[in-house]
Nucleic acid binder design. Sequence first.
DNA 1: CATGAATGAGAATTCATTCAT
DNA 2: AATGAATGAATTCTCATTCAT
Lengths: 215, 215, 215, 215
Amino acid sequence: MANKDFQTLFSESLGQSDLSVKQQAVLRASLELFSEKGFDRTNTRDIADRANVSEGTVYKQFKTKEGILSAILDPFIHQVIPKAIAEFLEDMSKTATPTIEDFLLVAVQNRMKFALANRLQLRIFLQEATRDPSLLNDLGAEAVKILDSPIVDFLRNYQREGQLIDWPLPRIVQYMLGTVLTYILPKVLNGGDLDVNKASHETVEFVLNGLKPRK
Amino acid sequence: MANKDFQTLFSESLGQSDLSVKQQAVLRASLELFSEKGFDRTNTRDIADRANVSEGTVYKQFKTKEGILSAILDPFIHQVIPKAIAEFLEDMSKTATPTIEDFLLVAVQNRMKFALANRLQLRIFLQEATRDPSLLNDLGAEAVKILDSPIVDFLRNYQREGQLIDWPLPRIVQYMLGTVLTYILPKVLNGGDLDVNKASHETVEFVLNGLKPRK
Amino acid sequence: MANKDFQTLFSESLGQSDLSVKQQAVLRASLELFSEKGFDRTNTRDIADRANVSEGTVYKQFKTKEGILSAILDPFIHQVIPKAIAEFLEDMSKTATPTIEDFLLVAVQNRMKFALANRLQLRIFLQEATRDPSLLNDLGAEAVKILDSPIVDFLRNYQREGQLIDWPLPRIVQYMLGTVLTYILPKVLNGGDLDVNKASHETVEFVLNGLKPRK
Amino acid sequence: MANKDFQTLFSESLGQSDLSVKQQAVLRASLELFSEKGFDRTNTRDIADRANVSEGTVYKQFKTKEGILSAILDPFIHQVIPKAIAEFLEDMSKTATPTIEDFLLVAVQNRMKFALANRLQLRIFLQEATRDPSLLNDLGAEAVKILDSPIVDFLRNYQREGQLIDWPLPRIVQYMLGTVLTYILPKVLNGGDLDVNKASHETVEFVLNGLKPRK
DNA sequence: CATGAATGAGAATTCATTCAT
DNA sequence: AATGAATGAATTCTCATTCAT
């Protein structure tokens, strides 16, 4: 049972719940509005209204509007994602996965579920990243940590066994990510449900075998 | 010999150059600024300054700031891209391509060059699309037209010959696109050069064979 | 003790004083400036200055400049004037008025005093009405209510007694109004005092007897 | 045979037709637009469009937008009206008018026809006069000239004969004007036809006899 | 003479942020 | 802590006016 659900992770990410109920309402309202309309087209009046709070209260905790954005994205990048990675790795370690198919299936499903559970944050992240690509670097820095973890041992092992092609791991991760994204991005942006089981099987099927018929 | 370059296509897209020199300067300045800072964080004062034009002039042709954005994105979606597709298809038809490797190589290179040549517009498009996913639908509508062209015959032929797996074509296109994007997106957002030759060979290599060693 | 004075009626008309002191200052400043220079030639900067308030404050309560105009004219047409009519009718009812001279004298004086007390609003009303005659219809709709009140009984009674000519009442009201206006309009537009006593006596003298010497 | 019609007087008023066809088109377009929407809400772009002329041409003859207004109102006040008065007086002199009824009838009809024929200018004049009452003085100055003309002799004669009450002539003119206005103003502002014959008879009937039944 | 592109000063309006209550 | 009125800088947009062609 992979990640905790969104509520839990989000709340935990909000600095150990040192936020009052109202402040959390502000954060949730901002999360929704930023995701729906974008940071620049959301005004503090609307945030206050949606959070059922005065405009002054919005500024009590978060000194600026920019600060609210940081309060959403910073923990997302530096806490939610790392924590998700950690839990993912733990899950992987526990799972006896003899074939690479099974391994990738778990990995892909894990990523897809995470993305859907954190849809709003991801959408905000994408919006900001298209403006300020340095955010992508921040994310990349976190992602690289995967390659500094036991998971590498799994992959190297598959390579040694001849189950996985002998390319540099970053290149392998790149392709898997790209393929997963083609399933997830439309859902993150447009909403709608994703049949994670079907999507993950299709992904693994392609990623492993490519477009040329075997035999 | 593939696409005309950016300058040409962009100028052509501006409705037969019915724009004065100054109006074109406004459009170019907006293109740059929107791409650099995003639509919402660009103000008309800055556009006027960069275009060496008065603020009034900015509004003479394009009635609103929103109108400038449309003047950039609309022809991009409805003229530049379709024209690029048309020229791409023509190139394909002319090329005798015995193996699917060669065919995909040309296709992928073509797409990559186009993306890099239209980097600024693409970046603006991405920024807006993350806010208003309906733009993706507009783009999708144009893209679908590919599947209504001679290129389909090529692909079906490869499938019949056993060079291409027997999946629905949209699924095949989806994976190719996803993989190409992993090379292009970082360049579109961050700038920098892409070794199109190397990237396209790697892409085709992966897309056709997947991550599992053949044999 | 006819109408309450302007201050009272104006304040009452402002929706039970649900406006802060500053908002009332905005309204008063607008009233003065619109009356002096006309709506179109008054800018919000001047309103803010005269009200000793920031320009943002002008827009807090009244969403647009147009909105300020409505905040002045709407209650004037739909509350101040109806209320004035009601009080006028009450005054009339209480007054035992054996002759039509006395009756008209009270009526005319009443109208003149009201017009002078509401000089600024009337002037704005006139300015707008010359652009948008539909305003006159709105006013007319309110005025017609007079002919749906006890005052009609008075007039009919005078007609029966042979003190008042047997014309349709609207025609009679039309002439009285026209004559009263010749005294009031110059004062509304130019300012200056009106000797209400003298003016009302002259009006009644003319209205009743015409220009041809009796006997 | 009272006034020449509008076209004639207006054209004559335009400085002896020293205006080109285009300039006259500008004046006519301005006349219509100012009357419809008011001076401040009419822009020079609209004037140029309605006159089928470039915006530059609008400024060739009339240095400023204000100048167009003057070109309309100045001759109206200082030429059209005086000329109308002169012709009116001439008509009066020629007419043998034994009774005051007949005399007033002609006078009133004359005024009404003039007002209707010059509806657009009058409307503009009213709009401006409600802003800048000094215009009323200008008009008044012209009007006073009536009392410096043969017409005075007519009126004094009627007074001597006991057909006209022995009040100061300005007061008499004031009442007549007020009554005439109640018929004309609604038409000037709202448009629509006026039954000049009926209206003039009613006016004279009231003005002479008042509201109290004779005997 | 006529044109209409260009100008730039100003106007309305928005909104993040502050602060007295 | 919470409120929301108040602020004023910034922004979009309009329009009378000018001037090169």
